[in-house]
Write a protein that binds this DNA or RNA. Structure first.
Lengths: 161, 161
DNA sequence: TCCGGGCTTCATTTTTTTTTGAAATAAATC
DNA sequence: GATTTATTTCAAAAAAAAATGAAGCCCGGA
């Protein structure tokens, strides 16, 4: 059974959320996570997790997991306001920071992470296997490029560019 | 039933393929596709589709679909050599081209694609809904930045940088 | 300490994605 | 034109991923 029908979202919010669903998909991030981010992006004020799950008609568990993932990406921030009983969430609104964190958390580990294991592989290949050595070498060059390019990448989205 | 067991791949090739599986995953691309690319990356010469599917122990259908996807990304090239009976495939070995095509095919459509629909949304919002207008405006700024940044991005991986 | 709202966790269920297998297609050879 | 061999397509199966729901947890207030 699906969750209880909730008040429909404003049309502009639906459209913005759809936009984020598309972008998130490109990076292999789940749809419900995109919806949560979109909701917070559209919100006027930080929201409780419960408000989010009610608004989107998703379970508390789903909201919890999605928010955890978004926090790992620093795409949402958890705030515990002084007077408040519970903590609430707001969306990161700076593309630059979004991209920068995405690079740090998702890209860099995969692209430049296995550096030593690649080096170990290269060391272990017999000198006469020139083809394998070439290919592994190329891979190392790629990593090298990634390592120097990634720090520059988020500057492309910086304030003054 | 699983496919017939095939001769095990050289250890270095296994490792290189694992590497690509990780990278592909980051971009939401399927694992078998990563394995096909990895196989071609390691190959000394272009391969027939049948050689690929046999080597990896996957079905012909899976190989066909994976190769189609990789061709869309320009990550592999189909070659029909003059003398040869059938066409064969080779991996794109230039990171720069790989990234450039990935941006063109996957990123750009999503990031800068909905420009006019966003503009239409902005036009349709009542002037008094300043919050919604602000948020949509921000989204348009993001698209703007993406549109200018993407063409520069692949230069970061260029030959001399 | 107990209560209660909200949050987390995780086994189960649901949904989506990927792979298979088989039939249809194509292309070169005889 | 028939035959052989490789490829494409697509419905069905299998696998993987995501969402649910319920049990337990945490934390502030009574």
């Amino acid at each position: 059974m699906t969750h209880p029908a909730t008040a429909p979202l404003p049309e502009w919010e639906e459209e913005v959320i759809s936009h984020f669903i598309g972008v998130f998909e490109t990076f292999g991030l789940p749809k419900s996570t995109a919806r949560i981010y979109g909701t917070l992006y559209c919100a006027e004020a930080p929201m409780l997790q419960e408000e989010i799950s009610t608004r989107l008609g998703i379970s508390a568990g789903s909201a919890s997991q999605g928010l955890k993932l978004l926090q790992n990406l620093s795409a949402v921030h958890r705030i515990t306001p002084p007077g408040q009983r519970h903590s609430c969430y707001s969306a990161e609104l700076s593309v630059r920071r979004l991209i920068s964190h995405f690079i740090d958390v998702q890209l860099r580990p995969k692209l430049t992470g296995g550096r030593q294991s690649l080096q170990a592989l290269a060391d272990r290949l017999p000198p006469e296997n020139t083809h394998a050595r070439n290919r592994v070498q190329t891979l190392q060059t790629w990593q090298q490029k990634a390592a120097t390019a990634l720090p520059l990448a988020d500057r492309l989205f910086g304030p003054k560019s």
